[in-house]
Amino acid sequence: MKKFYLLLILPLVFIGLSISKVSAQDVSSSISVEITTPSSVEVYPGVEGAITANVTNNTSSDMTNLIVYITMVDVVKNMTVNLEDYSADVPVVIPELKANQSETVTLPIIYVYPSEYHLYVTVATKDNLDIISSPSIPVNIITLTKIDYPLVKITSIAVPVLLLLAFGFVSIQRKRRNMTIQK
């Protein structure tokens, strides 16, 4: 009897799994996105750029309101990036993408803080909860120079000391003047 139930249940389980796998496969391949230009970035801070991405509707039905945006992660400091600082926080909305059609979008960016990043383009839509991202491109914002540590240390000590000496000097001068008799 147990063997009978097992034989009945197991096929149902396999069928269920394959349905969900098929569903996942269907969603992830319904939209595809890839960065067309640039393939990599190496610039100094302050340079303006643009990321061009191609978004494709792989389904047989039209899609509406696709939100396309940049995501960046700092792989040196291991943290995400506030895209507002890079003027890259405004997404592009594709109002309608017809079946099996592609659209190219341009996303502006200003390369600001020196570090190494991975940049990718992501598409989200109201119609489903999955997020589709492109492969990332390497972005290297080159630091102009490093701070001169000894100079900083010298300045940090010298300025307060000089001011203290100035205060002492001025106080002594006034006391000396007050002690002399005006003739």
Partner: peptide, 17 residues
């Protein structure tokens, strides 16, 4: 200034606060 300070007998203390 010195004339007036002398008049009010403050000339010797004119440089004191």
């Amino acid at each position: 200034i010195n004339y007036l300070l002398d008049k009010v007998q403050l000339l010797e203390r004119s440089n004191s606060r």
